[in-house]
């Protein structure tokens, strides 16, 4: 199965979150499904993740979140907008209670994978939505860090 052909995904923890198992398992699932995975690991600030996303020209940022530090995910969403990364998906996986999960979705996170999400669900979502996002914004895609004015506000 090569569902992930041509799709590049960052998998990372955010802030001081040191729980790596979920992120590593998802990285394996995505690689096995043909995605190109950039695994950033721990101790990544929102700024560092966005810089990596621009440098690596990724289609998706996936945050593995197990430390209740949701404020940093919100900061990441703001930074993505400010940098014009409008067609890039931001998805989060982890044990996030309903209320902050709803809040993050309202803030602009595209999808939250709660505990129990199957590998197939994650692969299917990314392979359809990331490509969809790519098709919908062919010309202006990610022209760099100076395009804060292209934010979707």
């Amino acid at each position: 199965m090569q569902a992930g052909n041509g799709i590049k995904v960052i998998v990372t923890m955010i802030g001081l979150d040191g729980h790596t198992t979920g992120g590593e398992v998802v990285a394996m699932i995505l690689r096995d499904a043909g995605f190109e995975v950039v695994y950033l690991g721990v101790n990544q600030t929102p700024r560092m993740i966005i810089d990596a996303a621009i440098q690596e020209d990724v289609d998706v940022i996936g945050i593995s979140s197990h430390a209740s530090n949701y404020g940093q995910i919100e900061e990441l969403v703001d930074l993505a907008r400010a940098n014009g990364l409008d067609d890039m998906l931001i998805v989060v996986g982890g044990n996030i209670p309903r209320e902050p999960a709803q809040h993050l979705l309202a803030k602009g996170v595209h999808k939250i994978f709660l505990p129990g999400s199957s590998g197939a669900t994650i692969v299917e979502y990314l392979s359809t939505e990331a490509r969809g996002a790519r098709k919908s914004a062919p010309a202006t895609r990610r022209s760099g860090a100076g395009n804060a004015d292209q934010g979707r506000m």
């Binding site: 001081l16 600030t45 404020g71 940093q72």
Partner: peptide, 21 residues
């Protein structure tokens, strides 16, 4: 997580996660 890393709560990275976990 802040004390776990041995930085302080008033460190720019500590400020966001002091007392969180």
């Amino acid at each position: 997580r802040v004390f776990s890393h041995c930085i302080d709560p008033d460190h720019p990275l500590g400020r966001k996660e002091a007392g969180v976990l």
